[in-house]
Amino acid sequence: MSIALEHAMLAHRVRSQRRARRLLGCLGALVAVALVDLMTGPAMLTVEQVLDALLHGEGTADPMVGIIVHTIRLPMLAMAVIVGASLGLGGAVMQTILGNPLASPYTLGFSAAAGFGAATVILFGLSLPFAPWLTVPLAAFGATAAAAALVYGFARLRGATAEILVLAGIATLFLFQSLQSLLQYLASPEVLQQIVFWLFGSLIKASWSSVAVSGAILAVSLLVLLVHAWPLTALAFGDERARSLGIDVERLRVSMLLVVSLLTAGAVAFVGTIGFVGLVAPHLARILIGDDQRHLLPMSALCGATLMTAAAVVAKVLSPGSVVPIGIVTAVVGVPFLFVLIVRGRSRGE
């Protein structure tokens, strides 16, 4: 090996280590923000109290603390982490398969569809006899599946190019947004308030069962996506080149699209439409770690989870006692953040 090559290989190793360090660093940040989240609320807790409650279950020195941490704050925290990770991951995949920095689970109308499904059952007061708590999530889920089928149908007819998918997605977005508005127009004031509250998104609806469902979807999706990490990376070279590398581009795009619709449904079904994390987290992750999907995918999930948890803390601090819809906070916190990212420019290729 030449000296130049040895230098380059050394740089390659240093880069790999730097990426690993940044992944760990982001994980550390998530843990720290999560701790702050557990401490924050109407009753402020100290770090010791929280750690004590975490270590000893509900049999802590102060049983009240145990109950607050375990039955109220932990499920909400877990949900925030899962929802943030799902949206971050979904956004990263969306941006990759559409080759478009503006793409997110919002872009293709998946979130709007979920909102429409939820609004429908709320408006008509429908309820599943055996599991009422699953009614709204299942409706959101079903509507997301319908949106995915719509986009997929377009793709089957006209070929799954990025342009066709973006167009189909925007059409789907407008369709479901209009339907949503129609339902809101039809609703009585009380029902309207319920619908709007759902649409803004709130962690208050989190429970261990919803955490289990959304968490399982996240875990399976992450695995499937990681298996396709290299083909997804190759998409960055454009369809023709990826195809000439032996990748079935259209099939990859459509199957990844289905995974994203699943992730989105899992994220918003229980807590409502929370946007923005899916747009910002992948950008942040890309700046930190580059486009190699093996690292970008976990990093996007971590960034999403951290942003979401931080937004949850801010929401609690802003209005102790009442619950500010977290969807609003993520947007209000996220927009300036996105501006900073844009102004600083993209330092790519880390």
Partner: peptide, 22 residues
Amino acid sequence: GVRAALTVLETVLLGRVRTLGL
């Protein structure tokens, strides 16, 4: 045209995208 933030080495590795593992 390449729109990805990838290194040259990663780009070359993608030549065998069908055989690369995690």
